[in-house]
């Protein structure tokens, strides 16, 4: 009986230790993720102007028609 009580006390110890460590580990991970997010967003702010949108050159409508008809013919023959 005493050994069972001892085992239960051990199990309780493992529970407290285990939950503590799980929270500690994942807690540190939270800090890490937030740190990375903050660093990257700061780096992005500095570099975003270079990512300005470039207008797509308008496609010639005759070229589009030619390509789509070629695709159709290829699909029909395949």
């Amino acid at each position: 009986m005493t050994s069972l009580t001892q085992q239960l006390v051990d199990a309780l110890g493992i529970m407290v230790l285990g939950m503590g460590l799980v929270f500690l580990f994942l807690g540190i991970l939270i800090l890490g993720v937030e740190l990375v997010a903050r660093c990257l967003s700061r780096a992005n702010e500095a570099s975003t102007p270079s990512m300005s949108e470039q207008p797509m050159p308008a496609l010639d409508s005759r070229l589009v028609a030619a390509i789509s008809s070629a695709v159709h013919q290829y699909r029909a023959s395949a």
């Binding site: 069972l4 085992q7 239960l8 051990d10 199990a11 309780l12 493992i14 529970m15 285990g18 939950m19 799980v22 929270f23 580990f25 994942l26 807690g27 991970l29 939270i30 993720v33 937030e34 997010a37």
Partner: peptide, 25 residues
Amino acid sequence: PKTLLLGAAAQFGIFATLIGAIALN
């Protein structure tokens, strides 16, 4: 990332069952 805490809390099922299994003795 705060949802990591939820993943941690749910592990209580594991450690509580550890006691349960010993108590089943």
